[in-house]
Simulated scan of single mutants.
Amino acid sequence: MGGLLIVDDEVESREQVRLIVEESQYHYLSISESDTAQRGLLLLKQNRPSIVILDLSLPDMDGIQFGKKVLECNPDVSIIVVTHLKMFEMVQTVINTGFSGYLLKPLSKFELISALDRLLIPDLVKETTKETNYVRNAVSSSKPFELDLGNPIQSVISYIHTNFHEQISLNEVADRVYLSASHFSRLFKAEMGVTFIEYLTKYRVEQSKKLLKMTSLPIEVIANNTGFANASYFATTFKRVEGKTPSEYRSIFSNLLHNNGTG
């Protein structure tokens, strides 16, 4: 098991990460620190850590570019971003670049240890890789609508999967496949076994679950970027579908990882 490299120009932030790790079940990890990208790359080559904890605001290089260089040197390194930036576009960039987590400052011990659990518990490594790939697809940009007149419902399913974060209505998608709303609705239910709204809602909830697992983004940010009108509606819908609130789901998942790591 490799060590841990912290790249952050804030001394207090580096000390906080070090303290959290040293007081956790991962105290055995060797920890190296850097306040610049250039020194970070040097330590990466010298120590070959398995995890890099990275602040995006570095004095000598853009954090995303630094992360790309890290992955070029060693594609197996897991990168956890720790930042003050709450912009969803930044999360998209981080995930699409191949990073493994996005945590917000001020950093909480619970969130950092949960992220390390997800990366370091052997039984969950494959599942983590799957989740990373799923989330990359979940935050992909809108794509042009591709219509297969022989398979209108599957055309709509593909459209949902790439545009779920946008506002989508039954009338809109029915128009896209040149069907009346009522006829499209009947066809969708017959082919998929659920209504159009039920399918769309369930898919959005599934995408939100992946972001709840992988990031520490605020609930309202996740809601706004998975197609829900507001955080309140998101919470109500999520609980109806999953039987628990988004916050409860995030806590339960994190607790499960933590227990697996210490049990």
Rank of each mutant, 00 (worst) to 15 (best):
A174W: 03
S185G: 12
K105W: 08
V135H: 00
E111C: 05
G150R: 10
F99Q: 07
E111N: 12
F110M: 10
G150M: 13
T132Y: 06
L179S: 06
I121E: 14
F184Y: 09
P144S: 13
L112W: 11
S185V: 08
S114K: 10
S141V: 14
V139L: 00
G98M: 00
S140R: 15
P122A: 08
F145A: 15
E131R: 11
F145P: 15
G98V: 11
S158I: 01
T93C: 03
P144H: 14
E127A: 06
Y159D: 04
E89P: 00
K143N: 14
I153G: 05
T97R: 08
V156H: 02
I153F: 04
K126I: 08
V139W: 00
E172V: 10
S142W: 10
L116K: 10
L103F: 04
A174E: 01
T93A: 03
S182M: 08
N137Q: 15
F184A: 08
S141D: 14
N171P: 01
N163F: 10
I121W: 13
M90I: 01
L103V: 09
N133F: 03
G98E: 07
S182C: 04
N171V: 12
S142H: 14
L112A: 11
S185L: 05
A181W: 03
L116H: 13
T128H: 10
L124M: 07
S108M: 10
K143V: 15
N171Q: 13
V91T: 00
R176P: 02
I121G: 11
K126P: 02
L179T: 04
D175N: 05
G101L: 04
L103M: 12
F99E: 09
A138V: 00
F145Q: 13
N96Y: 03
N151I: 02
I157Q: 01
K130T: 05
G101A: 12
T129I: 04
S108G: 05
H183Q: 09
K126R: 07
L119I: 13
P144Y: 11
E146C: 12
P106E: 06
S182V: 11
S141M: 12
V173R: 08
R176Y: 09
E89W: 00
N171G: 11
G150N: 09
D123W: 09
S182I: 04
H165T: 02
V173Y: 07
K130G: 07
K143G: 06
E172M: 15
F145Y: 13
P152S: 08
L170T: 14
S140N: 12
N96E: 14
S182P: 02
N137M: 13
D123R: 12
E127V: 06
K130H: 05
E131K: 10
L149G: 07
H161T: 04
L124G: 06
N163M: 09
D117W: 12
V94H: 05
D148E: 14
E172L: 14
K143A: 14
N96R: 15
I121R: 13
N163A: 02
T132N: 06
E172I: 03
T132C: 07
V125I: 11
P122F: 05
I153Q: 01
S158P: 03
T97Y: 03
S180L: 06
S169C: 02
S100L: 05
H183P: 02
G101H: 07
L107N: 07
V177F: 02
I157H: 00
F164V: 01
F110D: 14
Y178W: 04
D148H: 12
L104N: 13
N171W: 10
